[in-house]
Design a protein around this nucleic acid. Structure first.
Lengths: 355, 355
DNA sequence: GCACTCCATGTAATCGATTGCCGAATGAGG
DNA sequence: CCTCATTCGGCAATCGATTACATGGAGTGC
């Protein structure tokens, strides 16, 4: 299990301050002593909270530098009662859609001088509740959450929202009036269905996850509304609900193929499902887009690489993240007012899977 | 930009405690007052740090419950001088390999009762240094880092390692003796090259990133060593260095195809590159594995979905993460000794891209 | 019945930085 | 030369939980 063969490639250097076992932390008192001023002055000189004469600032900087002082964020946080940190809870880190969202949020926060505490709820409402409690106990300044479940997550989200600023992204729970930012799911399905109609599609199936959260519900509702509007047939047994995964996409496609009544198009509620569908079609020798058209939702990076590349709905995650962070900062500043509900418009990315 | 059409779908409920603007935090004193005991007893009753009589525990629990007390992790952290939090710094959150690693580390930490502070260095040593300083200032108990650069990251890693326990994963910087956990890159390339040799490959190219970090260097070294050992030709201009991205894979493949001298196999230093190579081959009508074999490294989830599915080297990220967390915990307990260098064995996943 | 141990609980110091308030010094205006 | 404003630095309280040490009462052994 343990092969140390690589260590030969490493040259050691001497790290100056590792000698003692427990290196005592340099505190503001040490700096004050060395600079021969009070701790108050050190604090002011370093943070700029109040004017300090230039030469004293020099001394203090010098002393801090010499001692390698790096401050104690915990003590500072306790006194100022803010941590400059926000927590983020997502159902899965493995789903590239959430990955992009996390990356964008991290980036937006960084520009606002804050850090990200990342938690994965692993699609488990209990674990999610635990993570939320933990974040609140750690005094994060705010929370960005994509709740696992439309109703089972309500309690945790509601409780947290009462404690601190909270923004829901992508999904939201019923009944808790917090800010929300996401994509306009109905519009997204409108784009897809119109595109399919223009391609001459007369019948369609929908493959999605169980209807346990808002965005899933809205996507199905959008699918139904727009297909009806455009006269596209949706047969009985043509709406398959499982989970957001490649594997479910495979299974659902196998079921559709097995049923013998393949529709003109398979609309998927996310790209992972669609990739699974494509894979099964390819294995079964069903031509895409020859015999059936397939679409996804999210536009994850790999949807451009499948065979055939996938037509999908692009979510503006950068914008979603930026808006979420903006709302959070805003909520940090003032008393809570009417919660904002921001549904950003998606766009259609047409690739070979729809001809 | 802002369409609020979705809000109609939301039912509000009244959240009890949102009425006042600033909800004053419930502190341990409040609980103590209500339970008619001292704060010391509350602390002991809730944490179990020392025996407290059962009925007092009841009272305290009751009081805490009634008031909705959730503790102040910051104050606790200050006093105990530990935060039960570790920081993780990775070059990119978008790369699925790091994503898996992050998820695994998060999971392992959770089981150890700790939380994860995630930072992306965006492959920028300066940003990385900044993030590391910030983590140290926030008093994380330890750091897990995959350093961006083999030499430019040395200063930040060395400084941090002198301040607190630090484990490097996947990559390591030269000259700083810290724990490291990763995969045995040389063995990984051994698996690939032997497999190719068995398939009758006589010449090969290597597509990788610039040699700015340890694992990239080791992979190239492994490629050279094993091809030489097995008598596979590596022509001049057959080692292409760019970056770990799909896009670079595309460009490199285009260069190889354009040169007119296509080798029997293209060995890629990670799956992203390999996926780019596959895409370009497919577009150019070059059959894989008919005319050229292609391999990757990492075994990201999407490597099974490409056309054709990709033969690659699987990294045991779960194990890497678990081992990293184990080493960190160990380092938290005792004085630092000889750093551990753990190179875990990879395995080969054979798919259609090598026939 | 006395001395001693043990245990539950309380008192108060402590972690390290921030900040309200105060006083000394300096300078300006009359 | 005096008053008043302004600036800069220090003192000490404070954030909220933990914990070393103190205390008082019950229980034990002789």
């Amino acid at each position: 299990m343990r092969s140390l063969g690589v260590s030969r490639a490493i040259d050691y250097i001497h790290v100056a301050s590792t000698e003692g076992s427990a290196v005592p932390r340099v505190t503001i008192r040490d700096v004050a002593a060395r600079a021969q001023v009070s701790t108050a002055t050190v604090s002011r000189a370093l943070s700029g909270a109040r004017r300090v004469s230039p030469d004293v600032v020099q001394q203090v900087r010098r002393a801090a530098e010499d001692l390698g002082y790096s401050g104690n964020g915990i003590a500072s946080a306790l006194r100022r009662s803010r941590t400059d940190t926000v927590g983020m809870v997502v159902p899965s880190i493995a789903n590239p859609f959430f990955t992009s969202l996390v990356e964008s949020v991290e980036h937006a926060l960084q520009q606002a001088g804050r850090q990200l505490f990342l938690c994965s709820s692993r699609s488990d409402p209990d674990l999610e509740a635990q993570r939320v409690r933990s974040l609140v106990a750690r005094q994060v300044d705010g929370i960005v959450i994509s709740p696992v479940h439309g109703t089972d997550s309500t309690e945790a989200v509601g409780w947290a929202a009462a404690e601190l600023p909270l923004v829901q992204v992508d999904r939201y729970v019923r009944g808790v009036p917090t800010d929300w930012v996401g994509v306009d799911d109905d519009a997204g399905l409108g784009l897809v269905v119109e595109h399919l109609a223009a391609r001459g599609v007369r019948s369609a199936a929908f493959v999605s996850s169980q209807l346990t959260n808002s965005s899933t519900e809205l996507r199905l509702a959008g699918f139904r509304r727009h297909t009806e509007r455009l006269g596209i047939a949706v047969g009985r047994g043509s709406v398959l609900l499982g989970e957001y995964s490649i594997d479910w996409g495979r299974k659902a496609a196998a079921a559709l193929l097995g049923s013998g009544r393949l529709p003109d198009a398979v609309v998927c509620a996310d790209d992972l499902i669609a990739l699974g569908v494509l894979q099964t079609c390819s294995e079964a020798g069903v031509a895409v887009p020859g015999e059936v058209l397939v679409t996804g939702f999210d536009d994850i990076p790999f949807s451009a690489l499948s065979a055939p590349p996938l037509t999908t709905v692009r979510q503006p995650q950068e914008l979603i993240a930026a808006e979420a962070v903006r709302l959070l900062q805003q909520a940090l500043g003032r008393v809570p007012g009417e919660p904002a509900r921001v549904a950003l418009p998606p766009s259609l990315v047409v690739r070979a899977s729809t001809g």
